[in-house]
């Protein structure tokens, strides 16, 4: 088990390095000059060159990458061009908000997805199954920003029950677990939860259906287990695969959603990203993408480490 854990941890290093290279390259391939936003319109060629040199954009790309990567290893992701603030602090504040939103969406999406999946799988090919499956497909297919807007129209504009934008009263960005703040998270969390819920529902349904059709289920009944006893076995069998799907979806939730955070003005990483893109704020963009990509890597790592605990068929050696 220890060897397995170490091996998985070591895998993270090349993956994380690859992720950094891709983040860096992608941002530099994108068109647009990062300095136009902060440079005076009437700046002379010398002033432009000086500014470029100050930010290090005059050096060859590999050198720029080496400098950026070296600093990133020490936790310094540079300074935002637009605001001048440190990227690390901007990202960590946004990450906190995204984590809160992802957590709330997980609490809604995963339990419901697993529950619906089980119900549909157990009652496969019945009316219940068809209703649940239709619901799940709708959830996956509907564009979630559109769903977000529809929810805002219904619950904020028409009914006036819930606030539509921000992460707290009066545009507050300091989250607190109280009723005032929780009211703000309901709509974005529900909107964000719909897609993972649909995906988890469909996966678990397929898994449960598959397990129930296997010979050993007949053998379990033959030894006298009740329906509940059989279902306990089904749960154990479904868990490993369901766990990996939930892990992937968790990565997706941690990545935040640019569209949903923008629709709801949620001050998370998605919101930060969209601002960075529009302002061509390269250091902020790189830093945010890197942190999000690393979240994905770590979500997968956790799943990989948990899997041998629930599935004896995976070798631990």
């Amino acid at each position: 088990m220890l060897a397995y854990t170490l091996q998985r941890l070591l895998y993270v290093i090349p993956v994380a390095f690859g992720v950094s290279v891709i983040c860096f390259m992608l941002v530099h391939i994108a068109p647009g000059d990062p300095l136009t936003a902060v440079m005076p319109i009437d700046a002379t060629a010398e002033q432009q060159a000086a500014m470029r040199a100050e930010y290090g954009f005059d050096k060859p790309l590999p050198v720029q990458f080496a400098i950026w990567f070296g600093n990133a290893l020490q936790g310094d992701l540079g300074a935002s061009i637009a605001t001048g603030r440190s990227v690390s602090s901007e990202v960590s504040r946004a990450v906190g908000n995204t984590l809160i939103l992802a957590f709330a969406a997980s609490l809604i999406g995963f339990p419901l997805g697993i529950f619906f999946g089980f119900v549909a799988g157990i009652f496969k090919d019945t009316l219940i199954d068809r209703a649940v499956t239709a619901f799940a497909i709708t959830g996956v297919s509907v564009p979630n920003y559109w769903l977000g807007i529809v929810l805002v129209v219904i619950f904020s504009v028409t009914l006036g029950w819930l606030p539509s934008t921000g992460a707290g009263p009066g545009g507050s960005t300091n989250w607190a677990w109280d009723f005032e703040h929780l009211r703000f998270i309901i709509l974005p969390a529900v909107t964000l939860a719909v897609v993972p819920m649909g995906i988890v529902t469909r996966t678990v349904r397929a898994l449960v259906g598959d397990i129930l059709s296997q010979d050993f289920v007949g053998a379990l009944r033959a030894k006298g287990l009740s329906q509940v006893g059989v279902l306990r076995h089904v749960v154990r069998n479904v868990t490993p695969t369901a766990l990996s799907v939930v892990g992937l979806q968790l990565g997706y939730l941690l990545g935040g959603s640019i569209l949903i955070e923008t629709v709801f003005n949620w001050p998370g990483t998605g919101f930060l990203l969209s601002n960075a893109i529009f302002q061509r704020d390269l250091p902020l963009l790189q830093g945010t993408i890197l942190v999000l990509a690393l979240f994905f890597v770590f979500a997968n790592l956790i799943v990989d480490l948990l899997q041998p605990l629930v599935d004896p068929r995976i070798k631990r050696g």
Partner: peptide, 24 residues
Amino acid sequence: SDYRGKTVSMIFQEPALALDPVYT
């Protein structure tokens, strides 16, 4: 279910498929 396994029990053709893979 009281009758199954107690009064009458069964062994199956393919033991690899008739045993639950994730239980000892």
